[in-house]
Write a protein that binds this DNA or RNA. Structure first.
Length: 439
RNA sequence: GGCGAGGUGGCGGAGCGGCCGAUCGCAGCCGCCUUGAAAGCGGCCGUGGGGAAACUCACCGGGGGUUCAAAUCCCUCCCUCGCCGCCA
């Protein structure tokens, strides 16, 4: 959630942000109304509750006096006072109860509306939809396979030749969009994991292996139960969720905590399986492993000060580029448009790798500056002197396995169906320089 | 899954239904003392909401209930620990 004070002092800022995202602007007015109603109802409750407390405190001593009273007149007098107070307190108790119920109901309504408001977009983000990104840079040159004298095979075919990817049996066992990594494929993923973790550690990230099933609070706190909810797997029996990214358990790791500002930034590199329903993507990428229900990913996640967030965002992007550079892949970097941001992101940069058989760039990493949005929801604050305030969180993909594997297989394939192994990866594959079909 | 114990402020650990947002110890912060440090002494020391402020409200694992009044009583759920069972 965003800073409630902005709603009270500068609601136009929120309206503008909603407009740029293509999301509801009217909800801001509903929220202003609900926020006012909430505060009024709470004040009314506070008032009544205070009266009740004051009154209640008189009853105890009076009852004591009643017990001690010896002569009849004094006793009757005290009894009458107690009775009167009790009667008064009793009706007050009913009022308090009613006011409490009302305040709760109104607060709930306001809180629900708050959850509908996405993070304020960064004003530097290009405005528009998916196609309206700004191209930041193209790096490397896509190979000209015609000039090399052979037709590029897609990753499915290469995966079959190398016996590295088995989507047919994946579908047999688990349905569409599931796959097995086998032999070379499995080794490749493990090598990528090691390379990614080595790089992350060198950059000050603490390696983490996280839970992949989380409570609703973690899912909601990271903003995935909003418009992204349809892509989240829910375990009905247990009311828990399968995470779509380790961003969720990493962000929630410090929920309800106050972190000393001197400890920031805190950087984690999380490794987990990721689960996505891929609802609404029927017909898209139905073949291969570009879009699957389950995959593994190394994710970078940072807790830092709001002042540092933008600079850290640039660093995350650079680290992502370093990794893709090390894999010798041609790619481009884009500044994602406002309409295509997740609800918690203020700004997002994607790296898209060139996929030869598709003749286009496809997303392989994504880094978002979520400013204080997640921290507010998850109650993560920093202590700076005697102030406590929300900190900033950021996330970025370091290595989403299937797509990186696709990019490597397709871009580094050779005429005979073998695949050249990028230098940086070789140490993690026993010095091997090329993947060849198993005998 | 069964039985037992327990969940209180950063940690440890008290808390008769009203005087408890909560005793005390440790840690931390400020000051005194000291050439400096330690020890000792004095003070401060949870979070959030509302309010210009005075002040006020909420929070003692979560939710519900009893009561004029709940950290304290009742119900329920969750979690932790121990033992038993089962099992990667």
């Amino acid at each position: 959630m965003i800073d409630p004070n902005i709603l009270r002092t500068d609601p136009d800022r929120i309206r503008e942000s909603q407009r740029r995202r293509g999301e509801s602007v009217e909800v801001v007015d509903l929220l202003i109304e609900a926020d006012l109603a909430k505060r009024a109802a709470m004040q009314e409750f506070d008032e009544l509750r205070n009266q009740q407390k004051v009154l209640g405190k008189q009853i105890g001593p009076l009852q004591g006096a009643l017990k001690k009273a010896t002569d009849e007149a004094a006793k009757a007098q005290a009894q009458a006072e107690v009775d009167a107070l009790m009667a008064q307190a009793s009706t007050l108790a009913d009022d308090v109860k009613a006011a409490d119920a009302k305040a709760n109901e109104i607060s709930e309504k306001a809180d629900q509306l708050w959850l509908q408001i996405s993070n304020l977009v960064n004003l530097d983000s290009p405005v528009g939809g998916e196609e309206d990104f700004t191209l930041i840079e193209e790096v490397g040159t896509p190979r000209d396979f015609a000039a090399e004298g052979f037709a590029a095979r897609d990753h499915i075919e290469i995966g079959e030749i190398l016996d590295a990817i088995d989507t047919v049996r994946g579908a047999k066992v688990s349905g569409s969009r599931f796959f097995y990594l086998k032999g070379i494929g499995a080794q490749l993923e493990i090598a990528l994991l090691n390379l990614a973790m080595q790089q992350a550690s060198a950059n000050g990230f603490i390696p983490m292996i996280t839970p992949a099933i989380v409570l609703p609070s973690a899912m909601e706190g990271t903003g995935f139960l909003g418009q992204a909810a349809e892509n989240v797997y829910r375990l009905e029996e247990d009311d828990m969720y399968l995470v779509g990214t380790s961003e969720v358990p990493l962000a929630a790791y410090h929920s309800d905590e106050i972190i000393d500002v001197n400890q920031l930034p805190i950087r984690y590199a999380g490794w987990s399986s990721c689960f996505r329903r891929e609802a609404g993507s029927y017909g898209k990428d139905t073949k291969g492993i570009i879009r699957v229900h389950q995959f593994d990913k190394v994710e970078m996640f940072v807790f830092t000060t709001p002042d540092e967030a933008e600079a850290e965002h640039k660093r995350l992007l650079q680290w992502e580029r370093d990794f893709v550079d090390a894999l010798e892949l041609p790619y481009r970097v884009i500044d994602v448009a406002t309409g295509d941001l997740g609800s918690s992101a203020a700004r997002k940069f994607d790296i898209e790798a060139w996929i030869p058989t598709q003749g286009t760039y496809r997303e392989i990493t994504s880094t978002s500056n979520t400013t204080e949005f997640q921290a507010r929801r998850l109650k993560i604050r920093m202590r700076d002197g005697d102030k406590t305030q929300p900190l900033a969180t950021l996330n970025g993909t370091l290595c989403a396995m299937p797509r990186i594997i696709v990019a490597i297989l397709e871009n580094h394939q050779q005429a005979d169906g073998s695949v050249r192994i990028p230098k940086a990866l070789q140490p993690f594959l026993g010095g091997k320089t090329v993947f060849t079909a198993p005998a």
